[in-house]
Design a protein around this nucleic acid. Structure first.
Length: 561
DNA sequence: AGAAGTTGCGCG
DNA sequence: AAAGCGCGCAACTTCT
């Protein structure tokens, strides 16, 4: 469908109603209607079915949960809050979108009203006018772009906003019984008013070996002092440092710390707080990371521990599709830099094996550290030592990241493939650099400024790669979602009610991995959808440049790795 | 007593 | 084993 043929409808929530405003391609109003809050979803669903418009909304985060709950799904949106952040900061536009506090994400905390807010309140506009004005401003910004990249990014980001809410509504199927069994098997029997049995035994062993029956193992300071008393002269209580010491307290201590971590991060309290009706529902925050990666709030969705993956279990009659991309970031780098040699190494499922084949390094481990070091800016250690070898074999790719690093060191801004730009350095950073370049700068100030400049360089170096990988993933998600909507309703309903009780849905997303929850009879079609979506994402970003982005995909009952 | 900062861990 | 990017969270410690 061509863009101009696309129907656009702004959907604005007012106190007790929704106003739907029909728009043309420039955002000019063609007509409007008022919908009572309680049955807006009926009209929306019918319009969705007959003409699948692009809905212009303030924010999916704010508006979509209620619609989903009422039974209306939105196909495509333009999310003004998400797109405002992109168009405001992008370096691709000579004249970026004007920043406005009105279009920042609303925070949940109640903030003290500022003078600025008071000013806004005084001059408050009609909410419909505000939406239309902002949309027109964003359309103007997009029409001044040199190519379609920012428009693609805005569309993908908006789709991400929908996916995030739909994933929360659908939830990740979570088997509390399996989770509990893992906890008991690992931590020992749960005991009222104390730590679980096995943890208690380990703690006892540690205290005995330390000759201190009282020491609190969860206090770094007290633990460190106790260790020093028995001759373990570690500087911190971190795992890798303790492992260096040969003392009988070390082994049980490391085991205890591992269990303590599981208990506090994903123990019974977490299970009770975050799993209801057999679903884990974290809050996803699209664009929550400066690079464009998603953040999460609550539930620790960014740290789903490997150990607990067996608790991710499909409902009866349903399956999980578990898919991830191996080495997404270096693949993105190869294509961004149009580095044919690196793309050649990326042919097939293991990029690191390809790097070894190219002769740059001898082993797969070396390849891994060299490639990670190139993207992260390692300068010392094994990783730093290997990076120069990549410069010989992949000069184009290395020039791209090296240039990004230099731009950052100089205080500049870099952009991802689709045009999301890094934040400008903060005033304190600029002040430090200015101070260091003054005639009276001390050696210490100069040294510190150089260190901070290198920090900045490593950030911008990584930004372009991490951010472009996030863009690939966004398109992947959007294309998966699009294809899932065509699948038939489930033969067996899911165990949890809600908008996805009978529909295949995205259930989890983490940077380069997705988990889908799908009716068993649709599993193969859903798997195909995930594969097709990956191919489309690569093609949308890089056109005909030959880049492999292979998936590790399986259809299973659990998400076990 | 509660806010703010630090440490350590686990995820990509 | 490493020490290079990006996160969230819990528990402890220090500050107010």
């Amino acid at each position: 469908m061509s863009r101009s043929a696309e129907r656009r409808i702004a959907l604005v929530e007012t106190g007790d109603a929704h106003i739907a405003v029909e728009l043309d391609a420039e955002g000019t109003e063609l007509g409007r209607r008022t919908l009572a809050r309680d049955d807006a979803h009926v009209w929306i669903a019918s319009v969705e079915e007959t003409s699948s418009p692009r809905w212009v909304i303030r924010s999916a985060r704010e508006a979509y949960p209620r619609l989903l709950h009422a039974g209306a799904r939105l196909g495509r949106t333009h999310d003004l809050v998400l797109c405002h952040a992109i168009l405001r900061d992008t370096a691709l536009l000579a004249e970026p979108l004007a920043a406005s506090r009105l279009w920042m994400p609303t925070t949940t905390e109640v903030e003290q009203p500022t003078l600025f807010d008071a000013l806004i309140a005084e001059t408050e506009h009609d909410p419909v006018d505000e939406v239309l004005q902002q949309y027109r401003a964003q359309l103007r910004a997009l029409s001044s772009a040199p190519d379609g990249r920012l428009a693609l990014l805005c569309a993908a980001e908006s789709a991400g906003g929908l996916v995030a809410e739909e994933m929360r509504a659908g939830g990740l199927p979570w088997d509390a019984v399996t989770h509990d069994r893992i906890l008991v098997d690992t931590l020992g029997e749960r005991r009222m008013g104390g730590v679980p049995a096995r943890m208690a035994e380990l703690a006892q062993s540690v205290r005995t070996e330390l000759g201190d029956e009282q020491v609190n193992l969860d206090s770094q300071q007290k633990l460190l002092r106790a260790l020093h008393r028995v001759g373990v002269l570690a500087e911190s209580t971190s795992r890798w440092e303790l492992a260096e010491f040969d003392h009988p307290a070390v082994a049980p201590l490391l085991a205890y710390k591992k269990l303590a971590r599981l208990l506090s991060a994903n123990g019974w309290t977490w299970l009770a707080d975050w799993v209801q009706d057999g679903r884990f529902r974290p809050v996803y925050i699209p664009g929550g990371v400066v690079t464009g990666r998603w953040a999460s709030a609550g539930g620790g969705a960014l740290q789903l521990p490997r150990m607990l993956r067996p608790a991710v279990r499909a409902d009866p009659g349903w399956r999980l599709i578990v898919a991830d991309v191996a080495q997404l970031e270096p693949r993105m780098l190869a294509a961004m830099a149009r580095d044919e040699a690196m793309a050649q190494a990326a042919r097939g499922s293991d990029l690191y094996a390809g790097v070894v084949e190219s002769g740059a390094v001898a082993t797969r481990e070396e390849a891994k550290y060299a490639v990670l070091g190139a993207m992260y800016g390692a300068t010392t250690g094994d990783s730093g030592r290997l990076v120069p070898r990549l410069r010989k074999v992949y000069p184009k790719a290395m020039r791209l990241v090296d240039d990004a690093a230099r731009t950052g060191e100089d205080g500049g801004v870099v952009s991802t493939w689709l045009g999301r730009s890094s934040p400008k350095p903060p005033p304190a950073w600029l002040a430090m650099q200015a101070a260091a370049s003054g005639a009276d700068a001390t050696a210490a100030v100069v040294r510190e400024a150089q260190r901070r400049a290198r920090d900045r360089g490593r950030f911008t170096r990584n930004f372009i790669v991490q951010g472009t990988a996030a863009e690939w993933s966004l398109i992947w998600l959007a294309e998966i979602r699009h294809r899932l909507r065509a699948l038939p309703a489930a033969a067996t309903p899911a165990t949890a009610s809600g908008p996805f009780a009978q529909a295949a849905h995205l259930a989890f997303f983490l940077h380069d991995e997705v988990i889908l929850h799908v009716p068993a009879e649709s599993a193969e079609h859903a798997a195909d959808a995930v594969r097709e979506a990956a191919a489309v994402a690569t093609e949308r970003l890089f056109g005909s440049f030959p880049l492999d982005v292979p998936l590790d995909l399986r259809v299973a009952e659990t998400a076990e790795k």
